[in-house]
Amino acid sequence: MKTIIAACVASLALVSTAASAGPFIEKGDAGYSILTAMDVTHATTTIRGSLRGADSVDMYAFNWKGGAFTAQTSSNFDPMLFLFTSTGNKVAFNDDHISLQSYIGLDLAAGKYLMAINQYSFNYGGSVTGFANAPAFRGNNGNYSINFNSAINAVPEPASLGLLGVAVLGLALARRRKHG
Rank of each mutant, 00 (worst) to 15 (best):
G49K: 09
T44A: 06
A154Y: 08
D39Y: 10
S50T: 11
G105A: 15
A19D: 13
G111L: 10
I117F: 05
L81G: 08
A18T: 06
S102G: 08
V155D: 08
S145H: 03
Y60G: 03
Y60T: 02
G88C: 11
N63P: 00
I47K: 05
R138A: 13
V57N: 00
S20G: 15
S56E: 11
T44W: 06
Y60R: 05
F131D: 01
F69A: 01
G130T: 03
Y124I: 09
L51W: 04
F93E: 06
D39Q: 05
F69Y: 14
W64A: 07
T44E: 07
S74P: 00
S102Q: 06
S56Y: 06
G49Q: 10
D39M: 03
V15G: 00
A159K: 11
I146G: 02
G126R: 08
T45Q: 13
G139I: 07
N141P: 00
N118M: 02
A110R: 13
F122W: 15
L108G: 10
H97E: 11
S150E: 15
H97F: 14
F69I: 05
T46Y: 01
N118R: 06
T87E: 05
Y103E: 12
D95N: 13
P23D: 13
A110P: 01
A109Q: 15
P158A: 12
T41K: 15
T70L: 05
E157G: 11
N133F: 03
L14S: 11
R48Q: 15
G66S: 12
R52P: 00
P158H: 10
L108M: 10
F93R: 04
N147I: 14
G22E: 08
M38Q: 15
V57P: 00
A21E: 07
S50R: 13
M38I: 00
K90M: 14
D107W: 05
K27L: 14
Y60P: 03
N140D: 15
A159C: 02
A154F: 04
L114E: 05
F122R: 00
T129Q: 12
K112G: 01
P156D: 06
R52L: 12
A19K: 12
A68M: 11
I104S: 07
A134M: 04
M80Y: 03
N76S: 06
G53N: 13
N143T: 15
G31Q: 08
F24S: 12
L114C: 09
